[in-house]
Amino acid sequence: MTTFTMGRRALMAAAAATLCLATSALADGHQVVEKIHFLIPGGAGGGWDGTARGTGEALTKSGIVGSASYENMSGGGGGKAIGYMIENADSLGDTLMVNSTPIVIRSLTGVFPHNFRDLTLVSGTIGDYAALVVAKDSPIQSMDDLIAAFDADPSGTAIGGGSVPGGMDHLVAAMVMEAAGKDALAVKYIPYDAGGKAMAALLSGEIKALSTGFSEAVALADAGEVRILGVTADERVDAYADAPTMKEQGIDTNFVNWRGFFAAPGLPAETLAAYQAAIAKMYDTPEWEEVRARNGWVNIHNSGSDFQTFLENQEQAIGDLMKKLGFL
């Protein structure tokens, strides 16, 4: 009996929701782009996949874009999709490829034969700051403590992360230590191939601190497993305001792992403007807010030339650091 009532109530709620959705879509009614094909350079279920599908969901549900389709093209850690965009540029006018910070890093190391300048920059849409965390019961309470421990025993103060040496987590750790006036090369970085394993190493005491994405760090801190020593944002982030920034602890550095969209080279200016307008408009919709909140993303919107400047600055900063660390 109870199940029946529940079922009916759920049905009514669903019907009401559908009605609201339909009316809002109709009311907005001003479609900006007819159709977008999202190219995802990795397999289903990864970060890129979630970004493309979430963005597509918000764009179509809010009526800004008529329809969206998705294509996963894994291979070469994303390099295959970049090559495909460049080789087939003429026929890919309706295609947007999702990408993120690694395109900068991997182009610098030469793993990708191309770089972001070979593509049409559309928009950076979301991002995640980075953070250094320690185990909950660690004697290290702040960045000052970590730096003191590092000074006392650089080799015994290993910092772990979920990326390869020279990858994002390593660069963040090195960047922070360098901004604190230490030798980035002396930082002992231990790579783990997955965040979970790095976390296990932190708990077993194998590593003293962990370099990871801020949203991951917040999840771990909420679970009561870690303490966040510092976040690489300019100001404290609302999602976890207890976490101090690096800057307020006297370490002048910032870092954003962005995600954004690229189009094939030689995209006509008006098509590019339409894509950028569609994405800009998306931020004000409740549909986007729902997708964003569900995934814990931070809005970091850079469009067109802003995106170009942002990427060039990041390339410069990362490139300098990688040279210093001997990766270039």
């Binding site: 991997r106 190391t109 390869v164």
Partner: peptide, 20 residues
């Protein structure tokens, strides 16, 4: 492919599909 410890591909013979 690229191991977790190196950021360069090994033994891929330049074939991108072997990079991972």
């Amino acid at each position: 492919g690229e191991g977790a410890l190196f950021n360069m591909p090994r033994f891929t013979m330049g074939i991108m599909d072997l990079q991972s």
